[in-house]
Amino acid sequence: MNSKRTGEKVIYWLMRGITYLVVVFIAYILIDILIHGLPAISWEFITGDPEKSGAEGGIFPAILGTLFLVIGTIVVALPLGMFSAIYLTEYARQSKFTQTIRMAIVTLAGVPSIVFGLFGLGLFVVALDFGASILAGSLTLACMILPTIIVASEEALKAVPKYMREGSLALGATKWETIYKNVLPYALPGMLTGAILGIGRAAGETAPILLTAAAFFLPELPSSVYDQVMALPYHLYILATQHPEAQKILPMQYGTALVLLFLVIGLNFVAIILRIKVRKKYKW
C-alpha cells in the first residue's frame, strides 16, 4: 500500500514536471527575446527607416506596413464574419446547406497559411491583376482569419439569452430590429474579442503576404492600396535568413522580433482582458 502510494506520488510529479517543461520553454522564448531585444529598442529604431539593407537604422516602414495590412484585413473580414455569424445563429435552420457552411468554416480554419498565399497569388495578384499589393495581401489575410471571426462572433451571439429575443419580438419588433437593437449591442464586445484575436494572427503571419504583398525594402512608404509594403514578420525573416551579414545584425533581428511579439501577444492579452470584462458586465 505504502509503496503504491509512493509510486503514485512519483508519477504525479512526473506529470507535473512534463507540464511545467512546456511552461519553462515558453518562458525561455519570451525572456530570451525580451533580454536581447530590449537593448535594440530605441526611439530611432521604432520611427526610423532601415539603413544598409536593414543592418542599421529602424523598422518604421515595416511597422506601418503591418498596420496597413491589418487594417485592410479587419475592414474586410470583420463585417463579413459578423454577418456570417448572424446568419448562422439567428437565421439558419438545421439543413444540408448550413452543415456545408460549418464544414467549410472548419476546412478554412485548417488551410495552411502558405496555401492561402498561393490562392491569393492566383486570384488577387494574377487573375484580378491587383499585383503584389496591400489590397491583395489584406484580402488574402481576410480569407485566412474569417473562420476565427465567425466562430468568436457566433459564441458572442449565443451568449445573449433567448429571452432577450423573445422579449423584443413580443413587443412587436421585427426580427432584424430585435437583432440590431437587442442582441448585437450585447454581443458586440464578444465579437470584438474575436476580431482582436484575428488581428493578432494576421499581424504575425508571414507566408500569405510573402506571395501577395510584402517587399523587403521599399524606398518610399506606400501611397495607395495597390502598392507593395514592408511588414514586420517578413522583415524579421529576411534579416534572420537572407541577410549577408545575418550573424552581425543580431540586435536588429531581436529588436524586430520583440516588437512583433509585443504586438501580437499584446493584442491577445487585450482580447483576454476584454473577454473577462464582458463576462463580468453581463451575467445573464
Binding site: V23, I29, I33, G200, E205, I265
Partner: peptide, 23 residues
C-alpha cells in the same frame, strides 16, 4: 497554466523560427 500555454499558440511562427535558428 491554461492562458500561459495559450500564449504559445499566439507566438508568430517567424518569431519561433527565429528563436529556433538562434537558440
Amino acid at each position: 497554466l491554461k492562458p500561459f500555454i495559450e500564449i504559445l499558440a499566439g507566438i508568430p511562427s517567424v518569431v519561433l523560427g527565429f528563436f529556433g535558428l538562434i537558440v
